[in-house]
Simulated scan of single mutants.
Amino acid sequence: MLDPEAKALLDAVKAANRPDYPSLGAEGARRLYKDTRAAVTPPAPEVSELDNIAAPGPHGPIPLRYYRPAGVDKKEPLPALVFYHGGGWVIGDLDTHDVACRTLANEARCAVISVDYRMGPEYKFPCAVDDAYAALLWVAEEAKRLRLDPERIAVGGDSAGGNLAAVVCIAAREKMKAGEAGVPKIAYQLLIYPATDMHMQTDSHRRYAEDHLLTRVAMDWFQDQYLNGPQDRDDWRASPVRAKSLAGLPPAYVLVAGHDPLRDEGEAYAMALKKAGVPVAFREFPGQIHGFVVMGKAIPQANQALAEMGVALKLAFGQG
């Protein structure tokens, strides 16, 4: 059964008859997404520190937002979560996911570094991957200055951000195997309804293709903005479930929503990780829709999900 609050939200969106993202173009879609956040986003919790900073990257500086949780010593080296926001590799930014990042910082008692990676259509695949990996490397290199524990750095994200977090883990493993210096050993991956297969052929893609916040039309448009062409769908940097091997990756927490086109590919990735010997905590919110985790004002279960993820991170960081 669809969660009552999720159903009420879908009904309200349908009644509003707002335009779909493809009809608006990338800039219009970004504005619409940002403008609709206030109606669903809970109040921002206090954190002890927030700083807008930047990391160098192969395509230019990468804006970051650095959070330290409330109630921690200013000098204490904290574990860290490098977070990649969702939005189909086209929409979303540091502001749209600010409350979720604050909440995760406080719940997990860790620093959070949110990454404003480059997006399509202005920057095509694999620019987002390049930025995501470069940001992780910089955080690890600057751990002492940022008052972080370099041995306890996790990655995470929702939707497209979950895709990037998964891909960064594979990239780090490959670069470590190749003997590249300075590659951090990622402690954990927090994958929130991640996109893992660009072919989009699962049953959940068929079942929830319409009348949901993430439709098939929107997914096709997001792909067109991000990828260079259909050939990119087979690249593991776009479809991490298609990597030759998932062995040796960090332990994972994979969350899926039951009424989400991405539900089945999220579960498929969790099962593939398990089959490869990676410890996985798989969590389904059966009544929920795609994107619910950042909608705690309209969907209270989002707050439960963030609290559970905070516990998972604490345990991964040895703070449980």
Rank of each mutant, 00 (worst) to 15 (best):
V112F: 02
F125I: 09
A80W: 00
L78H: 02
M119W: 05
Y117Q: 06
C110D: 00
P121Q: 14
N106G: 04
P121S: 14
E107N: 06
K124N: 06
F83R: 02
A105C: 11
P121L: 13
L78R: 00
S114W: 02
T103F: 02
G92R: 04
P79S: 05
T96R: 06
A132H: 08
G120R: 11
L104V: 15
P126H: 12
L81V: 00
T103R: 11
E122Y: 07
T103I: 09
R118T: 08
Y123A: 13
G92A: 09
R118P: 04
D130Q: 15
S114I: 03
V129F: 10
C127M: 14
K124I: 09
Y84T: 02
D93M: 07
Y123Q: 14
R118C: 07
D131L: 12
V99W: 04
A100D: 09
D130A: 14
A108T: 08
F83C: 06
D131Q: 13
G86A: 10
C110Y: 03
Y123M: 11
Y123W: 15
L94A: 12
G120L: 09
A105H: 01
A105N: 05
D95T: 13
A105T: 08
K124A: 10
S114N: 03
G120N: 09
A80D: 02
P79W: 03
L94S: 12
G86N: 10
C110L: 04
V115H: 06
H85Y: 13
A132S: 15
V129N: 14
V82N: 01
S114V: 06
E122A: 14
V82M: 05
P126C: 11
P79V: 04
Y84A: 02
A100G: 11
A100C: 14
L81Y: 00
F125G: 05
C101P: 03
A128L: 06
H97P: 02
A100P: 01
A128I: 07
C110H: 00
F125M: 11
G86L: 05
F125D: 06
V90I: 14
P126I: 10
P121M: 13
E107Q: 15
V82T: 02
D98F: 07
G88Y: 08
V112D: 03
C101D: 08
P126L: 04
G88F: 10
A132P: 08
G88W: 08
V90H: 07
W89Y: 13
I91S: 06
Y117M: 11
H85K: 10
D116N: 15
N106I: 07
H97C: 05
E107W: 00
A108N: 05
G88M: 10
G88K: 08
D95A: 14
A111I: 01
C110G: 02
G86C: 09
V99D: 01
V99R: 03
C101Y: 08
I113R: 01
G86W: 05
G88L: 09
C101R: 04
C127R: 14
F83A: 07
L104A: 01
A105R: 02
I91L: 12
Y123R: 13
Y117C: 08
V115K: 07
S114R: 04
A111L: 07
R102L: 03
I113E: 01
L81F: 00
D98P: 05
V90E: 04
T96F: 09
D93Q: 09
T96A: 12
Y117R: 07
C110W: 00
L81A: 00
L81D: 00
N106K: 06
C110N: 00
P121W: 14
D130T: 04
I113Q: 05
G120H: 12
L78D: 00
P121E: 13
G88E: 03
P126R: 10
